[in-house]
Design a binder for these strands. Structure first.
Length: 690
RNA sequence: GGGCUCGUAGCUCAAUGGAUAGAGCAUCGGCCUUCUAAGCCGACGGUUUCGGGUUCGAAUCCCGACGGGCUCACCA
């Protein structure tokens, strides 16, 4: 359902110029017509009436609806009775191509089917691409997405940022914005100290593995895991890594050589994955790019006067310990009290059940809390060094953001602030979006605030586009999966399903392979994009000791899935391919009166909602708006195809069968175009055959 | 303890403050001699976690309780 009111809601109740409705929606012309008629009858300005008119949620009742409560108020007499009376009055209106009826305080408007069909389909046919607009023209959006870390695996979690970011890129482009997709590669940081240390140690055995054809990144990951395990047991390793990173920062030749080796080899692997996913970036300036720009940021920060001294390491550790102890104490006390209450024999069953549940929870929690306290205690340094980092105190709720460490080094935050300045200066963007996991929210918000505090007006265009994580991924339990494995499994399963399905189309061996790949990746992408991006995805099932990935759900090929969408498109393509010579669809000589069946009209109406959906997706930075839209579009397509024959309609009394076939073929062409363009916004390939 | 976020059908999710809360999966039953059955049609399935409040009208807004998830200082 669409709302035609201004997004803010301001200006509804006063005569002052109402915000113009975004144009380009199919029913606009009808809304205007209806609003004008109502205005004539009630005396309320048409511009105030229009926002009250909404798309109906039930096609049986009509296409547009008006709840009369607010209108009655504007007309002078508020209340339910006045609304009912008003509805009765409005039924008498005579509006061109609109049928008016009332149901209690609601007025329903049924639009002439042929008028809708004409309006929507002409628009679909004439616009290229359909759904595109120029409302973002002249504005730039920078989208930081994917951004994997060098020498670490590309796993399922990275997929989310990649796929969501790409979809947002497509959505903003459709609205006419200039989009700069940035891959902010994690190509700098202490992990390289560890990697170099590992390579010095085991490079002699690692290199032959790579030369033997093993994937570079897999070897790197092995080394990274191995050196971290060693570092846990041997503090000397940590020291060694730290000094290697220091050398790297100082420009040591050997360190730099190894660093660029890791970076280059990893990039090749990332590129391989991006090729499969069909994704690219406009900029690949990673963290290392900002190395020489950091001092300028530090200067700016110092000049701003915002920097203050923070707590020492010992002070921090102590407050952490205190917090852990308090929590433990509280839980112990509550457990004791709960046990006391449970000992009371006169307790009611219901209360007893609730209490024992609470008891179980506390009992399970306690050992963990004890461990937390122990760990916190161990982490407290023996003596106070008095050294204080510098940062910005953001006050209540936000805490203290460290920008300069006690050793004079900079932090992640300092680097992001540096990158922010660079992006603001280079692109003059109206928006900068960071497509990064929801769990990093508390990292982004503070430094956005720092930018504002520094007086940078462009900072208000910065947003963190957070997303939920794949839950239950654990290397230890074997439930952490690399993206590679997922894509391969998906491809294999798509191939398997194709072999098992009843197919009426012939595909060459090569086509079959391509289709399996496209369906597999499409399925994975759609699974990732279909729900609200902030929701966690729990894909691991099974009992505590036997957790497994629920592949059936992840690689679902039926129902609300990627293949469902692709199949709708392929069916339409198949019909167009079978259309006889010389009958290419065209807007000329289409009799829109012939497209009036409920399934047909339903499909047409959904097609008309495309642009408002794109707009909504951009406003909310939410690709799932498009996901649900394409799902609806595909469902209506499948329903239409199941009920109406396109090329050879069943002859009907008084209907020109040829004209009917022509109108339906035209609809098929429009529908195919819309699905293809909607899929493109999600980064999912539309298939001609499958 | 602070901050954020979520709670809707057995499961996964929808629903601009509007009318009878909708899909998919799962279960059960139909439909390939008609353009692709990865599809269509039907049945079953709900005290929208609970309690208050605002409103003509609440899954939606406000307050509270309960229950998940994430996060809280020098790793990125």
């Amino acid at each position: 359902m669409l709302s035609y009111g201004p997004a803010t809601g301001v200006g509804c109740c006063c005569v002052a110029d109402p915000e113009p409705r975004p144009r380009g929606e199919t029913v606009d012309v009808f809304v205007d017509r209806i609003a004008a008629a109502i205005s004539g009858k009630t005396g309320v300005a048409a511009s105030e009436v229009a926002p009250l008119i909404q798309t109906s949620n039930n096609p049986e009742r009509g296409d547009l609806a008006l709840a009369c409560f607010a209108l009655a108020g504007k007309a002078g007499t508020p209340g339910k009775d006045a609304a009912m009376a008003l509805a009765q009055t409005l039924v008498g209106l005579s509006i061109e191509e609109v049928e008016v009826s009332a149901a209690g305080p609601f007025v329903n408007f049924k639009l002439a089917p042929a008028a809708i069909a004409n309006d929507v389909l002409s628009r679909v046919w004439n616009q290229s691409p359909y759904g595109a607009s120029d409302e973002g023209a002249g504005q730039t959006v920078v989208i930081d997405f994917s951004s994997p870390n060098i020498a670490k695996p590309f796993h399922l979690g990275h997929l989310r940022s990649t796929v969501i970011g790409w979809s947002l890129r497509q959505i903003y482009r459709a609205l006419g914005y200039e989009v700069v997709g940035v891959n902010h590669l994690g190509d700098w940081g202490t992990q390289f100290g560890f990697m170099i240390t590992a390579w010095k140690r085991w490079g002699d055995e690692a290199m032959p593995r790579i030369e033997a054809g093993e994937r570079d990144v897999d070897v790197f990951v092995d080394l990274y895991v191995k050196i971290n395990e060693l570092a846990k047991k041997d503090p000397g390793v940590r020291e060694e890594a730290r000094s290697w990173f220091a050398k790297l920062e100082a420009g040591d030749e050997e360190a730099l050589k190894l660093w660029s080796f890791f970076v280059e080899r990893s990039k090749v692997e990332f590129q391989r994955i991006y090729d499969i996913l069909g994704i690219e970036h406009e900029s690949e300036r990673g963290e290392a790019f900002y190395n020489d720009k950091m001092p300028a940021t530090v200067e700016k920060l110092k000049a701003s006067g915002l920097l203050v001294e923070g707590m020492t390491q010992r002070e921090t550790a102590l407050s952490k310990l205190e917090r852990a102890e308090q929590k433990l104490e509280k839980s112990e006390l509550e457990l004791k009290q709960t046990e006391g209450k449970l000992a009371d024999e006169s307790l009611k069953d219901k209360a007893r059940k609730k209490l024992s549940k609470r008891q179980g929870k506390l009992q399970g929690e306690l050992p963990k809390l004890v461990k937390t306290v122990e760990r916190a205690r161990e982490a407290v340094p023996a003596d106070e060094d008095g050294l204080r980092p510098q940062g910005v105190d953001l006050g209540e709720g936000m805490g203290f953001a460290i920008l300069i460490k006690v050793n004079g080094g900079t932090t992640y935050t300092t680097r992001d602030v540096t990158a922010a300045y660079y992006r603001a200066e280079t692109y003059s963007p109206s928006k900068v979006l960071y497509v990064v996991g929801q769990d990093q929210r508390d990292h982004f918000l503070p430094w956005f605030k720092i930018l504002e505090a520094m007086g940078e007006t462009w900072a208000k265009g910065f947003s963190h586009i957070g997303f939920g994580k794949y839950k239950g991924m654990s290397t230890r339990q074997g439930t952490a999966v690399f993206l590679d494995e997922v894509l391969e499994k998906a491809r294999a399963r798509a191939a398997e399903a194709a072999a098992a399905a009843t197919k009426k189309v012939e595909l060459s061996e090569e086509e079959r392979e391509q289709v399996a790949q496209a369906i597999g990746t499409g399925a994975i992408k759609f699974f990732d994009l279909k729900a609200d991006r902030q929701k966690d995805i729990d894909i691991v099932v099974g009992p505590e000791d036997a957790r497994v990935i629920d592949w059936d759900r992840l690689l679902n090929l039926k129902g609300d899935s990627g293949p469902y969408l692709q199949f709708a498109h392929a069916r339409l393509a198949g019909i167009l391919a079978k259309a006889p010579e010389g009958s290419a669809p065209s807007l000329d000589a289409i009799d829109f009166e012939l497209l009036g069946e409920s399934e047909t009209l339903a499909l047409i109406k959904v097609m008309g909602e495309f642009l408002p959906k794109i707009r909504q997706a951009a406003e909310q930075n939410e690709p799932s708006v498009i996901s649900r839209y394409v799902l609806d579009l595909a469902a209506k397509t499948h329903q239409f195809l199941a009920h109406q024959r396109v090329l050879t309609p069943i002859p009907q009394e008084g209907v020109d069968t040829e004209a009917l076939a022509r109108a339906r073929l035209f609809l098929v062409a429009c529908s195919k175009k819309t699905i293809a363009e909607a899929l493109d916004l999600l980064g999912i390939e539309a298939l001609e055959k499958m």
